[in-house]
Amino acid sequence: KELVLALYDYQEKSPREVTMKKGDILTLLNSTNKDWWKVEVNGRQGAVPAAYVKKL
């Protein structure tokens, strides 16, 4: 499985998103959308802005 690093804090704004903190390591589930990537963090799945994460 592919991992990404959170470059910034992000507070979810809808139920389809997830909150992450700078430095979090997230499991990347889907990166086909260039703006929003689906990730899993702390057992929750949701979208985060692609510009806020970097593939490891």
Rank of each mutant, 00 (worst) to 15 (best):
D24L: 05
D9P: 06
P15S: 12
L26C: 11
V41T: 11
V53H: 02
V53R: 01
N33P: 06
A50M: 05
E40F: 07
Y8L: 10
T32F: 10
W37R: 00
K1T: 12
L56D: 00
K21Y: 10
L28H: 00
T27P: 12
Y52K: 07
R16C: 15
E12S: 15
L5T: 07
T19R: 06
K22V: 08
V48Q: 00
M20F: 13
A47K: 13
Y52A: 11
I25P: 00
L5Y: 12
A47G: 08
I25W: 05
P15C: 12
T19I: 04
N33F: 07
V53K: 02
L26D: 00
V4Y: 09
L56Q: 04
L56Y: 10
G43N: 07
K22W: 04
Y8P: 01
T32M: 12
S14A: 08
Y8H: 11
T19D: 03
P15T: 10
E2S: 12
S14P: 05
A47E: 15
G23L: 03
L3M: 12
K13N: 11
K1D: 09
D9T: 06
L7Y: 03
V41M: 13
Q11E: 14
K13V: 08
V39E: 00
T32K: 11
E12N: 08
L7T: 04
P49Q: 02
Y10C: 03
P15I: 11
V48F: 02
V18Q: 03
W37H: 02
I25T: 06
W36R: 03
E40M: 10
E40N: 04
R16Q: 14
K38H: 15
L28F: 04
E2H: 12
L3W: 14
L7Q: 04
L7E: 03
P15Q: 10
K34P: 14
G23Q: 02
Q45V: 15
G46T: 04
S14N: 13
A6F: 04
Y10P: 00
K13A: 11
T32C: 13
Q11D: 14
K1C: 15
V18Y: 05
A6E: 01
Y52N: 05
E12F: 08
A51R: 14
G43Q: 06
E12K: 14
M20N: 00
V53P: 01
M20Y: 02
L28N: 00
R16S: 14
L29W: 06
K38L: 15
K1F: 13
W37F: 08
A50W: 02
T19V: 04
K38W: 15
A51W: 11
E17H: 07
V4D: 01
N30Y: 08
V41P: 00
T32P: 04
N30M: 08
K1V: 13
A50V: 06
E17P: 06
I25E: 03
W36N: 02
L3Q: 10
S31V: 08
I25A: 02
Y10A: 01
L5A: 06
L7F: 03
L56P: 02
K13S: 11
K54Q: 13
L26P: 01
V39R: 01
V4F: 06
N33T: 07
P49W: 04
V18P: 00
K21V: 09
K21I: 08
P49A: 02
V41D: 03
L7H: 02
W37C: 05
L56N: 03
L56T: 06
L3A: 06
S31T: 11
Y52V: 06
Y8Q: 13
L29R: 04
Y10T: 01
S31A: 12
G43M: 05
V48R: 01
K21M: 09
V18H: 03
I25D: 00
T27Q: 10
Q45M: 11
Y10E: 00
T19W: 05
D35S: 11
K54L: 13
S14G: 12
N42R: 11
K13D: 06
K34N: 12
V18N: 04
V41R: 13
L7W: 04
M20T: 02
N42W: 08
V4G: 14
K38D: 15
K38Q: 15
N33Q: 10
S14L: 07
L7G: 01
V4C: 14
L29M: 08
L56M: 10
G46E: 04
T19E: 03
K21H: 10
W37T: 03
I25N: 02
N33K: 08
V53C: 14
L3T: 09
K22Q: 09
P15G: 10
G46D: 00
P15E: 12
A51S: 13
D24F: 06
P49S: 02
A47N: 15
S14H: 11
L5D: 01
L5S: 04
Q45F: 09
K13M: 12
N30Q: 10
V4N: 01
E12H: 09
E17K: 05
L29F: 05
V48A: 03
E12M: 13
Y10F: 08
K21P: 00
D24P: 00
V39N: 00
A47Q: 14
E12G: 15
K34S: 12
E12Y: 06
T32S: 14
V18M: 12
I25F: 06
V18A: 05
G46A: 06
I25Q: 04
T27G: 05
I25R: 05
Y10Q: 00
G23V: 00
W37K: 00
D9R: 03
V53D: 02
P49M: 04
A50H: 02
N30T: 08
S31P: 07
W36H: 03
E12Q: 14
D35T: 14
V48D: 02
Q11C: 13
L7C: 12
R44G: 03
T32Y: 11
I25H: 04
S31H: 09
E2L: 13
A51K: 13
V39C: 04
V41Q: 10
I25Y: 06
D24I: 04
V41S: 13
K55A: 09
V48L: 02
A47M: 15
K22C: 08
Y52T: 07
K55H: 09
K55C: 11
N42Q: 09
G43I: 03
L7N: 02
E17A: 07
K38P: 00
